[in-house]
């Protein structure tokens, strides 16, 4: 089974965000693999262990993202592709166009991505990739298995992926929604996004780290994917970057627990005008 995992390098979630000169300061910041992408990668590695095949990780980022891709290779991915972010506009549609083109060439049976990246938090690009490639999708997946689909007996339409693929198999996914945990079946090739709780990602092993140094890591520019300016035209732009509204510490309530509870109820009603 050909598995492709979309990966983004992000700030560590423990990092403070400092703004300087209209940008987020990156000096001395620790970068990590987006936590949700770690779940996606771990799941891909487990699927490869169960079904055979290979895992390719794909990222669009700066040169610094090679560190994160090496981590992915050390965890067990077979190959990595890094598409240079330099020269691309700051817009999700352009990134989705680039990733879709790179993924199409890999002819995957299943594409896995994180539910969202902890920096931008939009959760849009992976699903834009699915739409561009004609792939079914299941989002916020908590549990995943790949099964024999039994042909058309399930009454399910085939994926529209231009490369065929999937071998008549289906992905069965439990996903986190506001209406409950929903179990869905979708035909492969397909895309899933990983929700926290899907698995417990492994740490890279020492032999894994040694092996990763010799695994292929291809670096490409958007032009090498055959994308022209029109395909990469941005739809949106950032107008400004702002710190969060300041929040001052309030007051601590004194007295015995019962008095504190009474005061708080009173303050929430009268001062905060709640209830």
């Amino acid at each position: 089974m050909q598995l492709v995992v979309l990966i983004k390098q992000t700030f560590d979630t423990e990092e403070k965000i400092e703004l300087a000169n209209g940008a987020v300061a990156e000096d001395g910041v620790k970068f990590i693999m987006n936590p949700y992408d770690e779940y996606a990668l771990e799941e891909a590695l487990r699927l490869r262990e169960a079904h055979g095949g290979s895992v390719t990780v794909v990222s669009c980022g700066t040169d610094r993202a090679t560190e994160t891709l090496r981590t992915a290779l050390a965890m067990g991915a077979d190959e990595a592709v890094l598409i240079a972010q330099d020269g691309l506009p700051d817009d999700g549609s352009a990134v989705a166009a680039v990733l879709a083109t790179a993924v199409r060439e890999l002819k995957p049976d299943l594409v896995l991505a994180g539910l969202f990246a902890v920096d931008r938090g939009a959760g849009s690009i992976a699903l834009q990739v699915a739409e561009r490639l004609g792939l079914p999708s299941a989002s916020a997946v908590l549990k995943l298995s790949v099964e024999d689909g039994g042909g058309a007996a399930g009454g399910q339409a085939a994926s529209r992926a231009s490369w065929g693929g999937g071998d008549g198999r289906i992905a069965v996914a439990e996903r986190d929604t506001e209406w409950g945990v929903e179990t869905v079946a979708i035909p492969l090739p397909a895309l899933i996004t990983a929700q926290q709780g899907l698995n417990e990602p492994r740490y890279p092993s020492l032999p894994g780290i040694m092996k990763a140094k010799r695994k292929p890591l291809r670096q490409l520019g958007a032009a090498e994917l055959g994308l022209d300016a029109a395909a990469l035209a941005p739809r949106t732009e950032r107008a400004s970057l702002l710190p969060p509204p300041a929040r001052a510490a309030g007051r601590k309530l004194s007295g015995a627990p019962a008095e504190q509870a009474e005061q708080l109820a009173e303050l929430l009603q009268r001062e905060a005008k709640l209830f």
């Binding site: 700030f11 403070k16 965000i17 703004l19 987020v24 902890v118 920096d119 931008r120 938090g121 939009a122 941005p234 739809r235 949106t236 732009e237 950032r238 107008a239 400004s240 970057l241 702002l242 710190p243 969060p244």
Partner: peptide, 16 residues
């Protein structure tokens, strides 16, 4: 206006 880093910063975006 939308949050970045879950609200550690905010950006204002506009459509072209």
């Amino acid at each position: 206006t939308r949050p970045l880093y879950a609200g550690k910063a905010f950006e204002q975006r506009r459509f072209l």
